[in-house]
Amino acid sequence: MLKDYILATSIEEALVCLKTYAGQARIIAGGTDAMLDLSAKKITTSCLLDITKVKELKKIESMDGQIVIGAAVTHSEVKNSDLIRTKAPLLAEASGSVGSLQIRNTATVVGNVVNAQPAADAAVALMALGAVVEITEDAGTSYVPIEEMYLGVGKSKVDSTKQMATSIRFPALLPGQGSAFVRLAQRGALALPMLNVAVVLSLCEDKVEWVRIVMAPVAPKPLRALEAEKYLQGAVINDELIAKAAKIAVSEATPRDSALRGSAEYRKEMLEVLVRRALQQALTTAR
């Protein structure tokens, strides 16, 4: 039963509070999901520990070619950030497609990762960016690649009753690198994706230096199309190769039947279209 609500003013204070409550307090940021989960009794906690007033967590910064997004930064702030729009445009696109403006104004990008939903738009883009999550706890700070953040559907490596995901960071895109975020949804807003795909692609002259392709929801977590990536690496890219890569990507995915958002069969076939479109778009922006 929820008994207390604490507005932390610093990371240290939050950590002390977690310790005091010994597993009975839970970190929240925007709280958009937490309030609903609490009233639906999906989660129980004695204390909500709100970090949205922690100034140091509200920054989007560029440091040594890395972009760092604090845990209290909202989707709207990311979408409207000039830094993100120029150095990670796919993330701006992804954050901009979450729910509705009101949701984007409160829900956070880091929360999107910590919630560990398999099709969270920003998380999919962040995985393509090779993002790393900074986790702070009493024992110190650790850095976990986003791909290792998922323990299962809705289950994150970060235990919000003991630890805190303080920020997420990724390399800013460089000239010669392109990106794309594409999404198939049943309507223009307020809709979870039937599928979303993020691509970051680095060209060296005409060849693909490396590429990251992330697809969702086709597995319990956003899924890298590693085989397709391998297939493209080092190749001189063209439409034919892209089409083949998309087919390979599909063979790596295992989308499920969703009574709400499309059959597995449809999702598989659409995945090919989306991966192809994302690669083409990423290539265009890379050139």
Binding site: S100, Q186, R187, G188, A189, L190, A191, L192, A259, L260
Partner: peptide, 21 residues
């Protein structure tokens, strides 16, 4: 579903048009 439960029982699951549509 096969147990007679509505699958689209809220605004997020029932696809009525938004301004974008």
């Amino acid at each position: 579903d096969d147990r007679g439960r509505q699958l689209n029982n809220g605004f997020h699951k029932y696809m009525l048009p938004t301004a974008m549509d």
